[in-house]
Amino acid sequence: MASRPRPRNGALADERAAGQTALLVIDMISVWDFPDAARLLPHAARIAPAVARLRRRCLAAGVPVIYANDHRGRWRSDFPALVQQALAAGGEGARIAGLLAPGEQDYFVLKPQQSAFHATPLALLLQHLQVRRLLLAGVASDQCILATAIAARMRDLEVIVPRDCTATQTARRQAMVLAQFDTVFKLSTTPGPRIRLAGASSRGTRP
């Protein structure tokens, strides 16, 4: 992944997010060697094309894309190296990495726990980008997506969890967490193609 130019004036970002919106892609770039990965990988592969389509729409609309990945137990982890490892691993994981490979315009954070906000610079990055609405895509929907959504709401961010762009280990668990997003947290689960990206007042429309 090519290095980006250093932002001016010490800022983390040199632009503002169109529509005050950002897309956060969680744990989709991986070598899939963690416990229970074999159960999760087929579901991640299933949603990868939808996440890729949403990412392309976001980039075309000026909506920044941020990747959040586990630091794999070491703060010396290297996200560009992880992308290359995922591509080299072959199989479904490599196909996902190929579909979602970040570009020089994208951002990334490394997280030690489920929430992409915990012990990461994500909140500061969103502040610099002037983000008020966060789209969450990736895996697992009832673990890292859920923890990140709760942390985002505690920061008064609007959160959309597009149902076609998230997954977990089983269909039953996915249905349960989508119901929880809707009924408990009052979050939109509007599918990616129906999310309006133009304009600061755009909001996901509940089906």
Results as ranks from 00 to 15, higher is better:
Gln113His: 14
Pro112Ala: 09
Asp70Gln: 00
Arg206Ile: 10
Leu54Ser: 01
Cys58Trp: 03
Gly93Phe: 09
Ala2Phe: 09
Thr166His: 14
Leu24Trp: 07
Val131Asn: 08
Leu59Gln: 15
Leu100Pro: 13
Met176Glu: 14
Arg55His: 08
Arg155Cys: 09
Leu136Gly: 03
Ala147Tyr: 08
Val65Asp: 12
Glu104Cys: 07
Ala44Pro: 01
Arg203Ser: 02
Ala60Arg: 15
Asp164His: 01
Pro64His: 04
Leu24Glu: 05
Arg173Tyr: 08
His128Pro: 01
Asn9His: 13
Ala89Met: 08
Tyr67Glu: 06
Ala17Gln: 03
Arg155Ala: 11
Phe185Arg: 09
Ala123Pro: 07
Arg16Gly: 12
Arg74Val: 15
Cys144Trp: 01
Lys186Asp: 12
Ile195Lys: 03
Gly90Cys: 06
Arg173Trp: 05
Leu122Glu: 04
Gly19Ser: 10
Gly199Tyr: 07
Ser77Lys: 00
His128Glu: 14
Gly10Trp: 07
Gln114Leu: 15
Val159Leu: 10
Gln105Asp: 15
Ala175His: 11
Ile160His: 06
Arg6Ala: 14
Gln180Tyr: 13
Trp75Gln: 13
Val159Phe: 09
Gln143Glu: 08
Ala89Glu: 05
Val51Pro: 04
Ile29Thr: 00
Ala50Val: 00
Ala198Gln: 15
Val65Ala: 07
Phe181Gly: 09
Pro5Ile: 06
Val159Glu: 03
Ala18Lys: 04
Gly103Ile: 01
Ile47Leu: 01
Arg55Ser: 15
Met1Thr: 07
Phe79Leu: 05
Pro5Trp: 01
Arg55Asp: 12
Lys111Thr: 08
Asp142Met: 01
Pro80Tyr: 05
Thr189Asn: 12
Gln114His: 13
Ala86Gly: 12
Asp70His: 03
Pro193Gly: 09
Arg163Gln: 15
Ala171His: 12
Ala140Cys: 11
Ser77Ile: 06
Arg72Leu: 15
Thr168Leu: 10
Arg206Thr: 11
Ala147Phe: 11
Trp75Met: 13
Ala200Val: 03
Ala140Ile: 02
Ala45Gly: 11
Leu99Asn: 02
Ala171Asn: 10
Arg196Ser: 12
Arg72Met: 15
Ala152Glu: 01
Ala97Glu: 07
Asp14Arg: 07
